[in-house]
């Protein structure tokens, strides 16, 4: 018996993917926000955590977020190729094969979860695994292509990092990280819907049922205002419930009021997308301000407490 290779057999070319392509696969900008919110969860947690353990937890959370990003890009490569915003990503641009992204994402998932479990604690590792699974399976695979509520429910994955940070420090969860979870959860719809308002054609071309594509621009603006009205008091809740100081309260109230004004202006906008772009840009600043103030508040309290002692 002789075996001959068919001349039409597909040939796998050796990879040309560089290190930069793999870093891009990890969505570094999303990763930085995840690390920042996780850091806040870690810092505001009671008790003392050794800086090396805290750094280990943050590295694992960052790598876990990168893993989720890589798996998202692996699954969404077809959508990304049809959208101007994402067409230059490594897989649709042809610099990286889908299988490479899948292997990379799964490897990082395994390493980040196991390392967090071994070096920090099991609760944080379980929450990290849940976050990655939720983002990849529930949001990317299931919701993103099937419902305009995709980013509302899927937003839970992005809201979990401060809870993971808290769990890394304490081994459990409590009301404070749950509040941070709720703030990010209710911040996500106004943030992403503002973006989708001026990217609606992109989403429509890719067949992603974002709210402006399915329900129209007017309804999306109304929903943004409703979620912002819920978000503003939630943002101030850590101060109202006594978990943060007056400085945080003032900033949260002022930033929340600015968010409402922008959402109101967005609702009244007749043409163009200037208000949507403003809303999107300010929403990033809003979340950063709130979490930065929590960090300042807790650091100042620790410093003054130290000096008082």
């Amino acid at each position: 018996m002789s075996v001959t290779l068919s001349p039409v057999e597909p040939r796998v070319e050796p990879s040309i993917a560089g290190v930069g392509d793999y870093i891009e696969l990890m969505k570094p900008r999303v990763m930085s926000l995840v690390v920042f919110t996780a850091l806040v969860g870690l810092v505001i947690a009671p008790g003392h955590l050794h800086p090396v353990i805290a750094l280990t937890a943050l590295i694992c959370i960052a790598v876990g977020a990168g893993a989720a990003g890589a798996l998202n890009m692996w699954y969404d490569a077809d959508i990304d190729a049809r959208m101007a915003r994402t067409a230059a990503r490594p897989i649709p641009a042809g610099r990286l094969q889908p299988g490479e992204a899948l292997a990379f994402g799964l490897t990082l998932t395994g390493f980040s979860v196991v390392t967090l479990g071994l070096l920090v604690n099991a609760a944080a590792a379980a929450l990290l695994a849940l976050t990655i699974a939720f983002y990849v399976v529930v949001y990317t695979v299931w919701l993103k292509r099937s419902t305009p509520q995709n980013i509302v429910i899927g937003g839970a994955a992005g809201a979990l990092p401060p809870v993971i940070g808290w769990a890394a420090a304490t081994g459990s969860v409590a009301v404070e990280p749950a509040l941070l979870f709720l703030i990010i959860f209710f911040w996500t719809p106004p943030h992403f819907w503002a973006l989708s308002l001026y990217r609606a054609e992109d989403y429509a071309r890719a067949g992603v049922p974002m709210l402006p594509v399915v329900a129209g621009i007017a309804e999306t603006r109304r929903q943004i205002l409703l979620y912002t009205l819920l978000l503003a008091p939630l943002g101030a809740a850590p101060w109202l419930l006594g978990y943060a100081g007056a400085l945080y309260g003032v900033v949260a109230l002022a930033a929340g009021a600015a968010m409402i004004v922008l959402a109101w202006r967005l609702r009244a906008e007749q043409r163009g997308h200037a208000a949507a772009r403003q809303m999107f840009g300010f929403s990033i600043l809003y979340l950063f301000l709130l979490f930065a103030m929590l960090l300042v508040d807790r650091t100042a309290a620790a410093l003054f407490g130290h000096f008082a002692a």
Partner: peptide, 23 residues
């Protein structure tokens, strides 16, 4: 590209080993 990837994998594994050692 392969050389750059190999170096990146080596550095990552080195960091992991050092991390476990320090912890």
């Amino acid at each position: 590209a392969r050389r750059a990837r190999s170096i990146a994998i080596a550095v990552s594994l080195g960091v992991l080993v050092i991390l476990f050692y320090i912890v």
